[in-house]
Design a protein around this nucleic acid. Structure first.
Lengths: 173, 173
DNA sequence: GCAACTGATTTCAAAATGCAATCAGTTTAG
DNA sequence: CTAAACTGATTGCATTTTGAAATCAGTTGC
């Protein structure tokens, strides 16, 4: 996983940054799942990332300028990972990627509801989401009158689908 | 390079389709470079793909439904690869990917001009481009009064930058 | 008939991956 | 005070993937 610099093409260079099976998964979990610690990323990962791969990718993403690391005041060994602006601006790409995957690939209903909402919300929703991420990760001020956060909205929709599925599976409740 | 189906998340599934260092490069060359044959992809590849990797990825992309293969009437051994609708709808993702890479990565001037124009053109230009690709690869009818093709426009811009660079390097001409 | 070209396949070394075990320091529970 | 649990990793090792070069058999142009 080195940066070859095979060519100066923007698409190629982007691929060299996250054209592997794990980097974007980690960023997805940080962006949509709000995970900030090693253990959260390790245990919360739906795809089951191994700890050595996670450590390697976190290091690599820091070297590339996509993440920063800071001490957690609550625990001397704990580290908080933050997204940089470079990573936050991936939101539109993730939105498109999710929308494309939802159309063409065998996605799960509950896991694609976020992608669906994000697609429907369009650029205005992406901008709002990026502002929220800037607030959480970079400490920039946030418009207070903006209602529930995008991540909360997406999370609530996800849980509603899960609840609906459980209900249909055993309607005894 | 197998499809693990690690999770039903749209982003994960998308990554399993083209989360490697070559698949998207091949699609880029077909979409923007108009390449349709094995040799064109092999020799025209800026990044220098190896023939076994190219063969493997072409096969894989066909299995995934992103490409189809047909005999070339002009040569019994020649095959023409075509994009499917699934691959054509990657255009917006490639546009975003290019735009992101242009901002954050050390791209080359002449290689990023296409990304710049595609970003400036926005969704209307992407739609026109996708229609042209559908015409070339799927045989659908094309609006005849639409002027020069997007690929021609991008290619002309690329060549203009290259010419300008050469002029600045040796203004004797 | 022969050189060049077609889309691959083979071989083999190097690199990446993934699992399990382990690490040393930190915090918490009893 | 001490043992257990938790912190972010690292190590060892078997498996898989990658990539470069050579090679392949069939096709075409000359």
């Amino acid at each position: 996983m080195s940066l070859d610099r095979r060519s100066g093409c923007p698409i190629n260079l982007s691929l060299e940054v996250f054209g592997d099976r794990w980097s974007l998964i980690i960023l997805r979990d940080m962006i949509f799942g709000g995970r900030r610690h090693f253990r959260e990323l390790l245990n919360g990962s739906m795809e089951g990332i191994a700890s050595n791969i996670l450590a390697d990718r976190l290091k690599r993403l820091m070297e590339l300028g996509m993440l920063t690391k800071a001490d957690d005041p609550s625990h001397k060994q704990k580290a908080i990972y933050s997204l940089t602006e470079m990573a936050i601006t991936l939101v539109p790409i993730l939105a498109h990627l999710g929308a494309w995957g939802r159309v063409w690939l065998p996605t799960t209903e509950e896991l694609s509801i976020r992608a669906e909402l994000l697609e429907k919300g369009g650029p205005p929703m992406w901008d709002k989401f990026m502002d929220e991420l800037r607030h959480d990760h970079l400490g920039t001020p946030l418009d207070p009158a903006s209602g529930p956060s995008v991540r909360e909205t997406l999370q609530a929709a996800y849980e509603a689908v899960v609840a609906g599925k459980a209900l249909r599976a055993s309607p005894a409740a």
